[in-house]
């Protein structure tokens, strides 16, 4: 499994998709000048733009790498040679996932450093009224990485089922969008306005809330941008949620791939 992870990691660095997405890093250079459009919160806007860019790059990587890595191996029949080795399909999938997850963490660290540099530079020129909490920024970027690792896990689950890249890519995009809105829907149906909805709609919404990944839990951008304290217990709980949810999704993916007929 370790070897699969290492090979996956090396493969990603040579992947054209990665090279294409890497071009977006150049936008970091523009952030200090765009941030000056703000009237009263230049540093906060630079943080908003930097974190959005980090999030966007990680989203592209997780969807396109997560959604195509496994599918490409199956499509190009690389899996036959790999699975001919004394390696179970489950370990193969987990190895690929581990390689992609480590890569995501690595990219997050690099993008995090770029964010630190940009925001430090802007804050020297336009000192913010409220001190930047660098710890919050670090936790925020870490949780962004965890969120996109979870997205990769979802993409792997779709890849284990699908024979083309459409389901892994578009299915993951749909789950990502839905997973970002479930909390909002859940709160709405439990508010006074939600009482007008039919009980069936409410039950379906609550069901989806528990089934779909809750990505909004990983979003700590507001805490990083405006220096709002982060709840320690909340982050620990979110981390446990991440571990358990990823375990379930990967478990399902292993189960499906193990039973899949490959021709």
């Amino acid at each position: 499994m370790k070897n699969v992870a290492i090979v996956t990691l090396k493969g990603i660095f040579r992947d054209r998709i990665f090279h294409g997405i890497l071009v977006n890093v150049a936008f970091f250079v523009l952030i200090p000048s765009i941030a000056t459009l703000s009237m009263r919160q230049v540093t906060e806007l630079s943080l908003t733009l930097s974190l959005s860019l980090v999030s966007f790059i990680l989203l592209l990587l997780s969807i396109f790498l997560g959604g195509t890595l496994l599918w490409k191996d199956i499509e190009r029949r690389y899996t036959y040679s790999v699975l001919g080795l004394p390696l179970t399909r489950g370990r193969y999938l987990l190895g690929k996932f581990a390689g992609t997850a480590i890569f995501t963490l690595f990219v997050s660290i690099v993008l995090g450093v770029a964010t630190y540099l940009v925001v430090s530079w802007v804050s020297i020129i336009y000192p913010p009224e409220r001190a930047i909490l660098w710890g919050n920024l670090t936790v925020c970027i870490l949780f962004e990485a965890l969120k996109y690792i979870l997205v990769i896990a979802v993409a792997f689950l779709f890849s284990s089922v699908s024979t083309s890249f459409f389901l892994p890519v578009f299915g993951t995009i749909s789950i990502f969008l839905a997973g970002n809105v479930t909390q909002q829907v859940y709160e709405y149906i439990h508010s006074a306005s939600g009482s007008a909805l039919s009980p069936l709609v409410c039950q379906v919404a609550v069901g989806l809330y528990y089934i779909l990944p809750n990505f909004s839990a990983f979003d700590l951008k507001v805490n990083a941008i405006y220096g709002i304290p982060i709840s320690l217990s909340g982050t620990l709980l979110t981390f446990v949620y991440f571990v358990l949810y990823a375990a379930i999704v990967l478990g399902l993916a292993v189960l499906v791939l193990s039973r899949r007929e490959m021709r």
Binding site: T48, L51, S52, S55, L177, V181
Partner: peptide, 8 residues
């Protein structure tokens, strides 16, 4: 809903 995690 559409802006997902890019509300800010």
């Amino acid at each position: 809903a559409v802006s997902a995690d890019q509300k800010e």
